[in-house]
Simulated assay, not measured.
Amino acid sequence: MRLGRLLTATTALGLGTLAYSYVEATRRFVVRELTVPALPAGRDPIRVLHLSDIHLVPDQAPKRAWLRSLANLEPDLVIDTGDNLAHHGSVGPLVQDLGPLLEVPGAFVFGSNDYFAPHRKNPAAYLSGGTGVDRGGEWEREKDLPYELLRAELSSGGWLDLNNARGELTVNGTRLAFTGVDDPHLRYDRLDPTPADASADLRIGVAHAPYLRVLDTFNATGNELILAGHTHGGQLQVPGYGALVTNCDLDTKRANGLHTHRTEGNDASWLHVSAGCGTSPFTPFRFCCRPEATVLTLTG
């Protein structure tokens, strides 16, 4: 009888945790605010909205309503670090939900789920902590999401396409130089060893997945701020410990949030890794890691 009660209690706890994790992933969206002293002294602040890992499916009504509300934050700049889609019909709804944000200065890169639709897989493979370096044939199939349509829509209002590209924007009188890469998780990145534009007021590196080879190159080439996503903050965090995995070779202590990254002989770069605001539709669970967007206020 005692064993039976223990099994019943354990089962109830497990089911309750699973139910909470589903609610957290699909309802408990949050906007986080951080200050990053990355601008030259005396410059006006710049409010940067960092979006990542939306993984949109058209019937996700609560997420879509929350996305529409983000325009009320009135950012000066929007950076989207990829994995926008999770369904073949998501581009139109995404553009509709971003709405006025597409008219704000912005930039974007792609993640794997801008090219490939998600599919069922063993979640234990993610929790094993694999870095994605050896993925076998998972990404050898033909691209099946409308990524070129997504590219056209995000670029239509003036957002910079930073997939293996550079660009610049002037925001609040401050000249920003960007260096971006296509998805490192797919090994689509083409790292450029050329130093970032030294004449700009701030240099920013943008990537979907924060692999160390990318962070090292961004830092060594003089980018003072680096923005990435991909990790989902580990998606399941242990209270008092944090993330168990990052799904890349970044350490779990930097699975999400604001940190620094430094290579030998160079000044440290600010590094912000977004925990993202979505999940694969086949694993709609988060625990102690709410879906998020972040407003980074850049100051002098």
Rank of each mutant, 00 (worst) to 15 (best):
L127M: 14
L7G: 11
T26S: 13
E168P: 00
R187Y: 05
A200V: 07
G99T: 06
L39S: 02
M1I: 00
R32G: 00
N164Y: 02
D83Y: 12
Q237S: 11
R190I: 11
G205N: 09
K121Q: 14
P281F: 10
A200M: 09
P105M: 08
D249A: 06
V238L: 15
D144P: 11
P281Q: 14
G233K: 00
T252Y: 02
L34Y: 03
A207L: 13
C289R: 05
D134R: 13
Y22Q: 10
E24Q: 14
A198C: 00
G173Q: 04
P93Q: 02
F110L: 14
V57W: 12
L3Q: 07
S112E: 14
R141P: 00
G240M: 06
V31E: 01
S274D: 04
L67D: 02
A117I: 00
A41Y: 06
L169Q: 14
T131K: 10
D182G: 01
V133Q: 11
C288A: 15
A107Y: 04
G240S: 08
G106P: 06
D189F: 03
G132R: 01
Y211T: 15
L51A: 06
T221A: 09
L73G: 01
G158S: 10
T11W: 09
R190Q: 15
G222M: 12
W159Q: 05
F110Q: 10
E292H: 04
P239T: 09
V133I: 12
L70E: 01
D216Q: 11
E138N: 05
L101S: 02
L227K: 05
E148D: 12
L145N: 06
D267Q: 13
Q60P: 00
R120W: 15
S280E: 10
F287C: 12
V78H: 01
D59K: 09
G130H: 04
S280D: 12
N164G: 01
C288P: 00
N122I: 07
E148Q: 15
H119T: 14
G111W: 10
R203W: 11
N266G: 01
L202M: 09
P210S: 07
A65V: 09
E24G: 06
V171H: 05
E168N: 12
V214A: 05
F287M: 13
L225Q: 06
T231K: 03
G240Q: 10
R64W: 03
V78C: 10
Y188N: 12
T8H: 08
S155E: 15
F110S: 07
L101Y: 07
V104N: 04
L85F: 10
R290Q: 13
N163M: 11
G137S: 14
D114G: 07
C248H: 02
A124V: 13
A207G: 06
A255V: 02
L6I: 13
A228V: 10
T231I: 04
A38E: 06
N113C: 14
